[in-house]
Design a protein around this nucleic acid. Structure first.
Length: 394
DNA sequence: TCTGGGGTCCTAGGACCC
DNA sequence: TCTGGGGTCCTAGGACCC
């Protein structure tokens, strides 16, 4: 049976949501009406563009470019900080509205959802439903969305990207030749910069070029990803809209340092709070991890990682701290680094972790300590409670 | 000039086993 | 003395997404 998929994509999400939130808090000026961006702080060396207004876009400002460049393109560019609590609030509100239309919804990212409408049309056309969603979101939440309509997720997603903002596009199989094939190949999902360079060197410049190239050539050059790329270019994608909430496979935190550091002890001072945060999040998920990884980015942007698989899954802050410090020692060497990060991978649900692991008195005591600190953080605020020195002792 | 932070998946090489 | 191949697990790195 032919499926009917919608892809709902918030226009300039972080910027729109910041604008709406400001207006709700009594501001009268709508930052969507001028060149403006959401960005990091240049002083803390996190100064890149996270989102831009339409007017900023028109001046050539791009997502992920340094704010320094963006300001050169527009002298009186307004810059606002990001606030993920606000974004999550509007993301949830959007999701809530979408649940009125089908129960097969996949939250693909903070600002994108797929809806499988195959059995939820209720006598309406898919276009009518898309229009209804778009109007209702704008009426109730005051921001615009693009909606793509097709028979597969990838095509619906490509459709929602066609022309912005506040537009609805269809991209059915019989339309791909006209609407998708002329697009530059970088606009295809999963074709990033590295692949574009390789494809261009093969004289493949548009999605149509890719679609019409002998798949054997693509597979030879790109392996498994090549099969996927070639399928996507031809509108082939059998993946389902996944309603059930996915459990995370890994959780991590990383931070850019205010200045480059090479000293192990100083880097540790940054690392340990990151471990604490990651483990707090892990315990919130009621999960434990088996692989601990430390990541550094050197001053010349080389990324190095060092990881270790544990014999048993853990959710203990102390245990992960100890491993993380070892890994940091191994990977840091004499590098001057600008970023430090920690990840816990190979996650398993706590109720699937063998009980024997929690049996020993020591880990049990440690677990209770972690949990009581978590509770205090929940009660008094995450930043109000710190663990003091028990983590830095080796 | 300046280059975030959160993820997922894939690949390739080495160790080890049969 | 010279020499297998298949499979799994682990690690490091890389590509991609938003």
């Amino acid at each position: 049976m032919k499926r009917l998929i919608l892809h709902v994509d918030v226009n300039n999400a972080f910027l729109s949501w910041t604008a709406v939130d400001r207006l709700e808090n009594g501001e009268t000026f709508d930052i969507r009406t001028v060149p403006s961006i959401i960005g990091g702080e240049e002083e803390s060396r996190t100064g890149i563009v996270l989102a831009k207004s339409m007017l900023a876009k028109r001046l050539g400002i791009r997502t992920a470019e340094p704010i320094y460049f963006a300001k050169q393109k527009c002298k009186d560019l307004l810059v606002f900080p990001s606030d993920f609590d606000v974004y999550n609030k509007y993301s949830d509100a959007l999701y809530e509205i979408l649940t009125n239309y089908t129960d097969k919804i996949e939250r693909f990212s903070i600002d994108e959802c797929f809806l499988d409408m195959t059995s939820s049309l209720l006598g309406k056309t898919i276009e009518e439903i898309a229009k209804e969603i778009q109007l209702r979101v704008y009426k109730e939440l005051k921001f615009t969305v693009n909606i793509g309509i097709s028979s597969t997720k990838i095509l619906a997603k490509t459709a929602s990207d066609l022309e912005k903002p506040n537009r609805i596009h269809t991209l059915y199989l019989n339309e791909i030749e006209r609407k998708m094939w002329p697009l530059p190949v970088n606009e295809l999902f999963m074709v990033g910069k590295k692949s574009v360079d390789k494809l261009n060197s093969m004289k493949i410049n548009t999605i149509g070029d890719l679609a019409k190239t002998d798949p054997k050539l693509i597979i030879k050059k790109f392996g498994k990803t090549g099969i996927m790329m070639h399928n996507y270019a031809n509108g082939i994608d059998s993946s389902d809209v996944i309603h059930t909430k996915q459990r995370p496979k890994g959780i991590g935190n990383e931070t850019t340092l205010a200045q480059d550091l090479a000293d192990y002890n100083k880097v540790c001072e940054y690392l340990l709070p990151l471990v604490e945060k990651t483990m707090y999040r892990l315990r919130k998920e009621k999960m434990s991890g088996t692989v601990i990884a430390v990541k550094i980015k050197t001053k010349d942007f080389q990324i190095l990682t060092k990881q270790k698989k544990l014999h048993a899954a853990t959710d203990s802050t102390k245990e992960v701290c100890e491993v993380a410090k070892e890994l940091l020692r191994d990977v840091l060497k004499n590098h001057h680094i600008r970023l430090i990060g920690i990840r816990v991978d190979g996650l398993v649900d706590n109720n699937e972790v063998q009980l024997s692991f929690f049996d020993t008195k020591n880990t049990d005591k440690q677990h209770r300590l972690d949990c009581s600190i978590d509770k205090m953080k929940d009660k008094f605020g995450y930043g109000m409670i710190t663990r003091g020195s028990d983590l830095s002792k080796s």
